[in-house]
Every structure is written in C-alpha cells, then in structure tokens.
Simulated scan of single mutants.
Amino acid sequence: MSNMNRRLFTAAFAAMAFAGPVFAQETAPAAPQPMVIYDDVLAPGWNNWSWAKTTLSTDIGSDVKPISMQSEPWQALFLQHAPFSTAGYTKLTFYVNGGPTGGQTISVKALIGDKPVDPGYTIRLNANTWNVVEVPLADLGAVNQTISGLWWQAQGQPVSTWYITVIQLE
C-alpha cells in the first residue's frame, strides 16, 4: 500500500472510530404517487354519479378534454369510487374554468360513509380562465379518512356551464 493510500485509509478509519457507532437512519415513508381521478377521462375505478348535467371529455377546441357541468341549485358533479384511505395524501388539486360568464359558487365536499362532509370548501370561478385549486384535505374533513367520492355542488342558484380537469389527490 503506498503512503498516500495508507494515509487515506488511516484517516477514513479514524473518522469512523471517532464518529461513534453507525446506525441505520430511519427514513420517512415515501409519499404516495398522486392519485389521478380525472385527466381527459375518468381514471379506472372512478364513476360519474352526478345529478347535474355533466359531459365527460368535452371537446373545447384544444388538447384539454375537461368535464363540463351546468346545474340547478344544489345539484352536483359526483365522482364516486369504492371506499379508500386518504392516508399519505394532503390535498385535492384540480383546474377549473368558469366558462363565458364565470362567477359560479361551488362547494367541494368529500364523502365519508357515503355522506358529504359539511360545510365543504367553497370556490368561486373566474370567467374564461383556467385556475388551479388546491384544497387541503383537512378543509374537507378527509385527512386519514376512508372516502367514497367527491362532490362539486352548486349552491343556492343555477350554475351556468363551467369546466374542471386534471383532478387528483396529492
């Protein structure tokens, strides 16, 4: 062993000796991959159980194929799934566009035990503009819960056509 290699070996050995015992470090569990709910089409396992006028994969003359919705008061876009745990997820994200008129007030709700969790998270849509919405699951009462779907519900007035796409849990 050359003098140079011996010095490097001795220095490395000394550093380990004075550093104390080496223990395996705990690592935080990996966050789950985003759960895609809708991106031009419904993801497998998700169903459209809406009781508002909805159209999936709407052709709006671009590469985006959103869900379009219009409704009477209290009707909703309802995306249903067999019950699953939200453990590891912290927020629901999606893109919305208020269509030509905008101004619609929509309440977003998670369903636990097939019942919506009130009061929900209220959003107001902008006309002809795509906006990303990030809803903390804590605001939906859905942190570490077993949910069976999500609602986007019109409030006390009719809702003109609006669009939603790229819906996922993160």
Results as ranks from 00 to 15, higher is better:
M1P: 12
S2W: 03
S2E: 07
N3A: 15
M4Y: 14
N5H: 10
N5L: 13
R7T: 08
F9E: 08
T10K: 11
A12P: 00
A12H: 05
A15M: 11
A15N: 09
M16N: 13
M16S: 15
F18W: 10
A19V: 00
A19L: 11
P21L: 15
F23L: 13
F23T: 13
Q25V: 13
P29R: 12
P34N: 10
M35G: 05
I37R: 02
D39W: 09
D40W: 03
A43T: 01
A43L: 13
N47H: 13
W49E: 13
A52Q: 11
T55V: 15
S57K: 06
T58G: 00
T58A: 13
S62E: 14
D63K: 07
P66V: 02
S68K: 01
M69A: 14
M69V: 14
Q70N: 14
S71P: 00
Q75M: 04
Q75D: 06
A76Y: 01
F78K: 04
H81R: 12
A82E: 14
P83K: 15
S85Q: 09
T86Q: 08
A87D: 10
L92N: 03
F94L: 15
N97R: 09
G103H: 08
Q104L: 04
V108S: 06
K109D: 04
G113D: 07
V117G: 02
D118C: 02
P119F: 06
P119A: 12
T122C: 09
T122F: 08
N126K: 15
N128S: 14
T129W: 00
V133I: 14
V135I: 10
D139V: 06
G141C: 08
G141W: 02
V143K: 13
I147Y: 09
G149S: 08
G149F: 04
L150A: 06
W151V: 10
Q153T: 15
Q155D: 07
Q157L: 14
V159L: 00
I164Q: 03
T165F: 04
Q168P: 04
L169F: 05
E170D: 12
